[in-house]
C-alpha cells in the first residue's frame, strides 16, 4: 500500500475531478432531463416526438461515442470550449477545469439527461390515475392538480430511479478519464503503468474509494426515500 500512500496527492486530485464531473454533470442532466420529461408528457405533439427521439437515440448510444464526439468531434467544427480555463491551485496540485473537462461535462450531461427524463417520466406515471381524477373532481384547476396532488407524489416516486441514474453517473465519469480528463480512472491507469509491480493494490485502493462513494450516495438516497415515503 506504500505506492498508494506516496501518491495520495495525485489520487486526491483525481477524485476531486471525478466528483466535480459528477456534481456539475449531475445538476446539468437534472435540468435538461426535467425539460425533456416535461416535453415528453406535455400537450404539444412536436415536442413530445422530439423528446422521444432524443431519449431513444441517446439511450442506445454508448457514452464513449458521445464523449468522443464532444471531445474530438466538436473541435473540428470550431466548438472548442477553450474559453473555459480555470486552474485552482491547491497544496496537493492543480485542479484544472479546461476545455477537455468542459467537453466531458457536456457529454455526460447530454447522455445522463436521457436517463433522467425516463426516471422522471416513470415517476409521473407512477401516480395513480384516480389521484388526478379526484383532484379534478373536487374542482382544482390544472395548476392546482399539478401543484397540490400530482407533483408532490411524482417527486417522491422519482427518488429511487433518479438515484440509480446518478449512481450510474458516478461510475460513468471514468469514461471521461479514457478521453483525457485527469480523474480517478486516468490517475489509476498512469499509476498502474508506473508501478507495474503493485497493480493489484492500486486497483483495490481505487475500487474501494469508488465503492465507498457509491455506498454513501445510495445510503443517502435510501434515507431520503424512507423519509419522504407516503403511507
Amino acid at each position: 500500500m506504500d505506492v498508494v500512500w506516496e501518491n495520495r496527492e495525485a489520487i486526491l486530485i483525481g477524485f476531486t475531478h471525478t466528483i466535480l464531473l459528477f456534481v456539475i454533470a449531475g445538476i446539468g442532466s437534472l435540468l435538461l432531463g426535467t425539460l425533456l420529461a416535461a416535453m415528453r408528457v406535455g400537450p404539444i405533439g412536436v415536442l413530445r416526438v422530439a423528446a422521444v427521439i432524443y431519449v431513444s437515440l441517446v439511450r442506445n448510444t454508448p457514452l464513449l461515442m458521445i464523449l468522443l464526439l464532444f471531445r474530438f468531434g466538436l473541435p473540428k467544427v470550431d466548438i472548442k470550449f477553450s474559453f473555459v480555463d480555470v486552474v485552482i491551485p491547491t497544496t496537493a496540485g492543480d485542479i484544472r477545469l479546461n476545455n477537455i473537462f468542459t467537453a466531458c461535462v457536456l457529454g455526460l450531461t447530454v447522455y445522463t439527461a436521457a436517463f433522467v427524463a425516463e426516471a422522471i417520466r416513470s415517476g409521473i406515471n407512477a401516480v395513480p390515475l384516480g389521484q388526478a381524477e379526484a383532484a379534478r373532481a373536487i374542482g382544482l384547476p390544472f395548476g392546482g392538480v399539478m401543484r397540490e396532488v400530482i407533483l408532490p407524489q411524482a417527486f417522491r416516486a422519482t427518488v429511487p430511479p433518479l438515484a440509480s441514474v446518478q449512481i450510474a453517473l458516478i461510475k460513468n465519469t471514468t469514461v471521461a478519464g479514457a478521453v483525457g480528463v485527469v480523474e480517478a480512472f486516468n490517475v489509476m491507469r498512469s499509476m498502474t503503468n508506473n508501478y507495474a509491480g503493485s497493480r493489484i493494490e492500486i486497483f483495490i485502493a481505487f475500487a474501494i474509494i469508488f465503492v465507498f462513494l457509491v455506498e454513501i450516495y445510495s445510503f443517502a438516497a435510501h434515507r431520503l426515500e424512507r423519509r419522504w415515503r407516503i403511507a
Binding site: 461510475k171 460513468n172 471514468t174 469514461v175 478519464g177 479514457a178 480512472f185 489509476m188 491507469r189 498502474t192 503503468n193 507495474a196 497493480r199 493489484i200 486497483f203 481505487f206 475500487a207 469508488f210 465503492v211 457509491v214 455506498e215
Partner: peptide
Amino acid sequence: RAVPVLLAMVLVFYA
C-alpha cells in the same frame, strides 16, 4: 456492482 467497468477492464488487461 459498485466498481466502474473501466477500472476492472484495465486491471484485467494489465494483469
